Simulated scan of single mutants.
Amino acid sequence: MSANPFLDPTLVHGDLYRGDGRLADRTQALHRAKISGSDVADTIANLLAARVPRGAAVLDIGCGRGTTTLRLADRLRPRRLIAVDASAALLRTTRDRLGDAGALGSVVCADFHHLPLLDSVADAAVAAFCLYHSPTPTLAVAEIARCLRPGGAAVLVTKSLDSYAELDHLVRAAGLDPHGTSRPSLYESFHSGNLHTIAATNLIVIDVQREEHVFHFADATHLARYLTTTPKYRITLTGGIPALAATLRLRLPAPPYTTQSMVSYAIAVRP
């Protein structure tokens, strides 16, 4: 078992993404808290729209719940849109959301190290907030490059190593996890610092753009809702969100609680 939950295959293919509830709750808590930073799905769609004509064939690798997939469908009007994820539960959500929006697209359940797709099948590909689940992200990037036509564009997105580090200190100060500040970053395998190097192993990197996102948790319950979605800490407190919020109120200074993450976008092309 890896010390990093995001690199532990048992967790990644089990509790973390067996259903879509944890990811939905995490995303909702972060969106409610964000006070600074662009919408990531919009940014990805805009970056691709500047390089890929409408009617392109597009891959969304590690699509999750399909938020970026939907934005790509709306912005690029691709002739073919394929959403790929290793979680069948997340793919069901993506498929349903595409259907509800009247958007055309297909879903493929697959490991991004072994994409069941032909060489040069796509004009563009996105891999957002997923490659840090790979212990060998260069192999995943090689697969993405293989599926792109020569000159095809890719947008790879990740977070900084120190994302949400302020919460490490809060968790430790509240006595919820005494090792909260020493646990490895969830993003250690693929992060803002090594994004360019890893992308450049199989793609030509045109640009890397970075933007700080700031999050403001207004009260202990809001923070507790987020903390219950992150696997980073070893919190053994029972009683769910109410008990966790009560402990935070008792042991921490008064809110708000602020944290940040650097989001980085590599724009690259297949040689």
Score class of each variant (00 low, 15 high):
199 A>M: 01
39 D>C: 04
84 V>E: 00
73 A>K: 09
121 V>G: 08
9 P>M: 00
176 L>V: 08
165 A>P: 02
150 P>C: 02
121 V>K: 03
88 A>V: 07
34 K>G: 07
106 S>W: 10
74 D>N: 07
64 G>R: 06
213 H>T: 03
202 N>T: 14
217 F>T: 11
230 T>G: 06
79 R>E: 10
246 A>C: 03
80 R>L: 08
248 L>E: 06
246 A>S: 12
155 V>I: 14
13 H>M: 05
51 R>V: 00
191 H>N: 15
2 S>A: 09
90 L>E: 06
163 S>L: 01
213 H>V: 02
163 S>W: 13
234 R>L: 01
269 V>Y: 15
129 F>A: 11
207 D>P: 05
136 T>R: 14
62 G>Q: 11
52 V>E: 10
18 R>E: 14
229 T>A: 06
92 R>N: 10
92 R>V: 02
255 P>F: 02
120 S>D: 15
137 P>I: 03
242 P>E: 04
257 Y>M: 00
181 T>I: 02
140 A>S: 15
156 L>A: 00
160 S>Y: 07
53 P>T: 00
12 V>I: 14
153 A>Q: 07
109 C>Q: 15
49 A>N: 02
170 L>I: 06
5 P>C: 05
189 S>P: 02
259 T>Q: 07
184 P>C: 02
178 P>D: 13
150 P>S: 04
52 V>Y: 08
209 Q>H: 13
203 L>S: 06
205 V>N: 03
181 T>K: 03
266 A>D: 04
40 V>T: 15
183 R>K: 15
197 T>Y: 07
245 A>F: 08
2 S>N: 13
111 D>T: 07
9 P>I: 07
120 S>N: 14
69 T>R: 01
67 T>V: 13
70 L>I: 03
110 A>E: 05
71 R>A: 14
44 I>L: 01
180 G>P: 10
58 V>S: 07
45 A>Y: 11
176 L>Y: 12
113 H>N: 15
182 S>V: 13
90 L>G: 04
262 M>T: 14
181 T>F: 03
195 L>T: 01
59 L>C: 05
51 R>P: 08
151 G>K: 12
241 I>S: 04
230 T>K: 00
266 A>I: 05
64 G>Q: 07
65 R>E: 10
176 L>T: 12
101 A>I: 05
128 A>T: 09
179 H>Q: 14
8 D>F: 06
184 P>Y: 09
78 P>K: 08
176 L>I: 07
239 G>L: 01
211 E>H: 04
182 S>R: 15
242 P>F: 06
17 Y>L: 10
76 L>Y: 06
136 T>H: 13
95 R>E: 10
81 L>S: 05
219 D>P: 05
125 A>C: 12
264 S>D: 08
197 T>A: 14
16 L>K: 00
83 A>F: 02
253 P>R: 01
237 L>R: 13
154 A>T: 09
162 D>M: 03
39 D>V: 06
158 T>S: 13
175 G>P: 10
154 A>E: 05
253 P>E: 02
20 D>S: 15
147 C>S: 13
66 G>K: 06
149 R>I: 10
176 L>F: 11
140 A>R: 06
183 R>L: 05
179 H>K: 10
69 T>V: 04
202 N>M: 01
233 Y>H: 15
201 T>H: 14
156 L>R: 03
96 D>F: 06
